[in-house]
Amino acid sequence: MQLEDLGTKLDIDITGALARFSGVKPLYVKYLKRFAVDPTFTAYEAAVSAQDPKGLEESAHALKGICGNLGLTSLYQAYSRQVALVRAGDSAAAFSEADAVIHAARQCRQLLAELA
């Protein structure tokens, strides 16, 4: 799958993200593909399983930054909300929404793994 095809399958701001990567498409693609195997995602899943608010906040914060830079708009918003909920003291809400976030992220990672 080519980068241009992603736009129809994902909520992704390719133009904005490419600009952030100084227009260097191979660099952008390299990090999109790396997100498919990024260990931070595993850390996030582990924090959810362990019901660990601190771990959830830290991993969600890191993923928020990564998704923001990669232009993965929906995921960026989802992780932002996770961080905000934990910081607001509502970890329960964060954990209750976490499964949906994990599901969306897995779908995204699957697609990114198919990038040429």
Partner: peptide, 13 residues
Amino acid sequence: DDVEMNRAILSEI
């Protein structure tokens, strides 16, 4: 920055 991608983006700039 602890995230390599963030460093790469800034470095490229």
